[in-house]
Amino acid sequence: MYLKELTEIGGVSGDESRVRDFIASKIKDKVDETHVDKLGNLIALKKGKKNGKRFLLAAHMDEIGFMVTNIEDDGTLSFSPIGGVDPRVVPGKRVKIADKVTGVIGYKAIHLQKKEEIFKVPAFENLRIYIGTDSKEASSKLVNIGDSVVFTTEYREENGRATGKAFDDRAGCSVMMDLIDNIDRYDFDVYFAFLVQEEVGLRGSAVIAEQIQPDVAIVLEGTTAGDNPEVPEYKWATHIGDGPAVTFMHRGYVVSSKVVQNIMSIAQKNGIPYQAKRRTAGGTDAARLAGTWRGVPSGVISVPSRYIHSPVSMIDLNDYHNTVGLVEKILDEGEVFFK
């Protein structure tokens, strides 16, 4: 399991190189080929014994974050979100800029706020990052416009649950790395695609289908749990601890019913807990894989994760291990997906 290392690396969309280098260094001796494509996707191949069909597993390396848009006269940094970030979770957080400079996203302390200000959603244009300088000149020596900005949450495990940032989708990346560690050779080729720029519109995956030409794909995700106490149970998307979440539909794609059925029956047969993902908002790279080239029937399996797209989220480690176990069984019975 590589969750600690993976989640503590910064890798905002478009700036995934550190994540990619880490993954590549760990997997390169365990697969037959790796290459980085023109968009920055890392693709690994474990060749099959019969070299006929192709099974693709995919997870995205990028995470939500920010980008420096301007260096102000007082040395503070203006910034803009990369991917979907709720501005309410932003103020008062420590961040890292360009993987080297630490900053704080500042906001007016509660003592100085009027009553009606307190519960207002802050606007990104009113937020600044402070990096301990007092002038544009001083800040310009440390950071550049266009630098990426990430939260700096450390990874922790307690009571069978893990907290950290970027489980969306380092959880998926870690699942794939575990599989690379565990699996034997199959009759068919297994491709592992670690993708870029998912959070800004499924961009990395747009060039994958034509490149690999897989017969089937499973996208591995860290998905929203939504099992907050204030939300009635019938509105939850998933519940952490209930097992990997299987998607039947999301934005832009109704998952091939054959793929969904195969996934669910393999879970049932092997006694692996799973749950249906019970909301349809949000999309994944599966929509791109299905809609490009000649169309790749694509499933989605996710580790349910509370509070995603925020500085800290929580997963159940059983869900994580069951996801690894489920995907391993899926590969063991991979031939059913080619029928």
């Binding site: 539909m249 934005r251 832009g252 794609y253 109704v254 929509a287 299905a290 809609g291 490009t292 000649r294």
Partner: peptide, 14 residues
């Protein structure tokens, strides 16, 4: 899958 984002047509055209 036209109604959810013109899904099938991309593939048919290709």
């Amino acid at each position: 899958q036209e109604e959810i984002g013109l899904m099938g047509a991309r593939v048919a055209g290709y």
